[in-house]
Design a binder for these strands. Structure first.
Length: 346
DNA sequence: CGGGGGAGTG
């Protein structure tokens, strides 16, 4: 069996998440003496991460870390960053910095910047920023966007916007990053303004853009504009995914159109917890505790785990309900929700 | 091999 065949087997087992099968493949890799195949090992690392077998992933890396292949280090950092293991990602980066022979490339930076953002380590991010200017890697569009995102996550929006303004090359993702930067800062109007600029500059917005733009309309309670923009996107054939769906449910809910919110929600093929929460929050703001309780029960039945937001919205709607003192059914619903809150850890 | 998206209360 050759490397190509093994790789394709591995990809299939990654998508079907069958660990047993993969262990057999891994054994085969070792017995065939292909453990030095970098490409194969990158796939193995990603596979073990997808099964949360981080220890195995690290072992694979360890057997090859002396091979002077930077991409292997980058794969490991990216895998950690993607799984929110930011400390581990930074540890790999720090070790890489001390490496005597490996010369940096632009792929080394996005993951570590994501980790800095996730940990709020702005001073470390700034240190890297300085290096990026010195080495010229800041000219890479992905590296620069990562910087913008890192500064936004660290609440240093001014720095993020400055980096964006100085970018010599931009793409859809970098525009999305800066639009989201304004949104996160609480400047929804400015986010919409940048969206206009993005289109004027000739970039085609995608579903990521749509999510942020709809959320901005939601925050501004500008239902008309949101609808208008959404219809344009529909005409352009932009995908209606779970992010877009949740943003729409949120917008309709915030604007008090619960029928529309419910309609979008029902149309979502996969209802994630954010969509549930957005709908519950909508009913909660109307003081409709009955609908909140009903949804709270339904999501439990459907196996979607409530979050802190689910519970606070549901409970708030119950306490807001003026009938609570008199209506036995509401009272028991409240207690039910409260009991679950005590049993689960928050 | 890398970057960008959504929910609550006070």
């Amino acid at each position: 069996m050759d490397t190509t065949k093994l790789l394709s087997l591995l990809r299939t087992s990654i998508s079907s998440k069958s660990l047993l099968k993969d262990k057999l493949i891994h054994k085969k890799v070792v017995t065939l003496g292909l453990q030095n195949s970098i490409a194969l090992c990158k796939n193995l690392i990603n596979f073990y991460f997808s099964c949360h077998y981080y220890h195995y992933a690290k072992l694979i890396f360890k057997t090859l870390e002396d091979s002077l292949d930077l991409s292997l280090w980058n794969v490991l950092m990216a895998a950690y960053a993607k799984n929110y293991m930011f400390i581990e990602a930074l540890e790999v980066f720090d070790r890489l910095v001390l490496h005597p022979f490996l010369k940096p490339d632009s792929y080394k930076y996005p993951s570590v910047l994501k980790a800095c953002g996730g940990l709020g380590r702005v001073s470390y991010g700034q240190l890297i920023h300085t290096q990026l200017i010195r080495t010229g890697f800041v000219l890479d569009v992905v590296v620069a966007s990562s910087l913008v995102g890192m500064f936004a996550k660290c609440k240093r929006f001014d720095y993020g916007i400055k980096v964006f303004d100085e970018m010599s090359e931009r793409d859809v993702a970098s525009w999305n990053t800066v639009i989201s930067c304004y949104y996160q800062e609480g400047q929804a109007g400015k986010a919409l303004e940048l969206f206009g600029k993005m289109r004027d500059s000739g970039f085609e917005p995608n579903s990521v853009t749509l999510t942020t733009v709809i959320s901005s309309c939601a925050r501004l309670l500008d239902l008309e504009r949101g609808k208008e923009i959404y219809e344009e996107f529909v005409k352009d054939g932009i995908a209606f995914d779970s992010y877009v769906g949740s943003a729409l449910v949120d917008m309709y809910g915030k604007c008090g159109c619960l029928e529309m919110a419910r309609e979008v929600f029902d149309r979502m093929p996969v209802k994630n917890v954010v969509a549930w929460n957005a709908l519950i929050a909508g009913y909660s703001s109307k003081g409709d505790s009955k609908s909140c309780i009903e949804l709270f029960r339904r999501m439990n039945e459907e196996g979607v785990k409530p979050t802190l937001i689910t519970r606070s919205c549901t409970l708030m709607s119950c306490t807001r309900s003026a009938k609570l003192e008199h209506d036995e059914q509401d009272k028991s619903s409240f207690l039910e929700c409260y009991d679950i809150r005590i049993c689960d850890s928050w």
